[in-house]
Design a protein around this nucleic acid. Structure first.
Lengths: 269, 269
DNA sequence: AAAAGCATTGCATAATCTGGAAAATAACCT
DNA sequence: AGGTTATTTTCCAGATTATGCAATGCTTTT
């Protein structure tokens, strides 16, 4: 069971690194900080091993120890790494650059989100002289069913990555029916909602996620027609969500401009 | 030879992992894809070593190979990892959770604000036993020039969203010079004030906004170095605002803890 | 077409990681 | 507070595992 065993799992790489990355993956799956022993149990590794891996990750900034309690969590380096990786994709840069314009032209708060494994994650945030949400910041994850942003992902993102969160939110919605007042949490109703959103070209909510606020969201599509990111406008005037309103027009134009990057396949050289 | 050597670089972790993470750091610093040999040269490692590390990273999804030509770049897994980390560094929520501690430790009233459309907006409010305060509540907006909170935004928030309010307050201050006793409302003086605040690390006022009260405020910074939120301590004793006072120390530690500690995955050698 | 560059893979050596257990630390309960 | 449990962290010998050199395929250049 040793040397030339290419049976499985053999990546041609380094075993200890593979193990370390499994550990990192386990940390990623968790919602928050985890203790050493929890991680050790979850990865089926001896605690001493996990500890040494964590020490190296910590040294690199990928992991940090939350406030003296000895719990470990993903650190700033992980954010930096992710943003670097994100910056490799043109559409993110172009969208980020253009977002301020959208904000000033529409006079509304604009934000840009991408799909992470915890849901729709806000990566850019452009505040306008219009109603601003107070309890949200960069890095906030938005709900899939009850936010305009989430619904845009629901309608245009590939279904597979969404499924886990979609099901979780459906369960949650069944228990607290008050939350989603315009949505019966059944698969059928969701399909119908998706169809409506697609036909409209944008998603919207009125005061559902945050009372008193309305929002519209549209996708930035890649060459396969899947949402790579979602741009959202937030305001207070219910007029906003009306089809054909100035904000809707601007938002859709913005997203269309940024969709399917005009790159040629001939980047082979 | 290298056994008990704690002399340098020894993290208590795993050497091969440290090397691998140095490699990852090198990839991060590059703007785009890099060839194996380039990375090998840059990290001072033999190409074969780099190749095997990359194989493991690739297997984990952190790295991918661009179009068969053998160039390596950060992959989708890196984005996912970063977004997970981002979601945990939701500044506003973390700060909200920690605010009660700041309050009890300092024995002062603590509040947390973000920049809203109408100015610095109070979103959380933790009362101390002792003194208290006026008719302020959640959602109150604080002045930009005459409150410690506002001045912290002035010094650390991106200038664009502040401009409208700054100009309005400057106009107003010129008409009612009595209000801002320590500030001549000219652009030059404001620049000077900002500089002082930045150097100090916190902003303060003594009885300016509310007679008889003193306050100190420091920013919670995001990864762009911009203020995502501001934490403020309010008391009656003028000692508070002195540099080096216990309250100042606590407040700055609090904000530093919650701010995004910038960077650097790789340190040389 | 030949050559040069580059990524990829074997292989023996020894350096490195491993994992159990002890030491240090923190948390917990009475 | 004291005593006790449950963590996290460090230590150590052994052997698995990473390492670097050199050889092999590929692709690209002249």
């Amino acid at each position: 069971m040793a040397r030339g065993d290419k049976g499985e799992g053999q990546t041609g790489g380094i075993q200890s690194l593979d193990a370390a990355l499994r550990l990192l993956g386990a940390m990623m799956e968790r919602r928050g900080p985890a203790s050493l022993s929890e991680l050790a149990r979850e990865c089926r590794m001896p605690p001493s091993k996990v500890h040494r891996y964590l020490a190296s990750f910590q040294h690199a900034g990928l992991v940090e120890q939350a406030g003296r309690s000895g719990k470990y969590d993903l650190g700033p380096g992980a954010v930096t790494l992710g943003l670097s990786a994100l910056a490799r994709h043109d559409f993110v840069n172009r969208a980020s650059d253009a977002l301020p314009d959208l904000c000033t032209e529409s006079g509304l708060t604009a934000l840009l989100s991408v799909w992470g494994n915890q849901g729709a994650t806000v990566i850019r945030w452009e505040r306008a002289a219009s109603p601003t949400v107070t309890s949200m910041g960069l890095g906030t994850t938005l709900p899939l069913l009850n936010s305009a942003t989430g619904r845009a992902f629901l309608a245009w993102a590939p279904p597979a990555p969404l499924r886990a969160i979609r099901e979780a939110e459906m369960r949650h919605a069944r228990k607290n029916p008050a939350i989603a007042s315009d949505l019966v949490p059944t698969q059928r109703d969701i399909d119908k909602l998706v169809e409506t959103i697609r036909a409209q070209g944008y998603a919207s909510v009125e005061g559902r996620f945050i009372p008193g606020l309305v929002a519209i969201a549209a996708p930035i599509l890649d060459w396969q027609g899947e949402a790579q990111a979602v741009a959202t406008l937030i305001g207070t005037d219910p007029i906003l969500v009306q089809p054909g309103s100035e904000a809707v027009t601007r938002l859709i134009a913005f997203c269309k401009e940024l969709s399917f990057a005009p790159m040629t396949m001939a980047d082979a050289k």
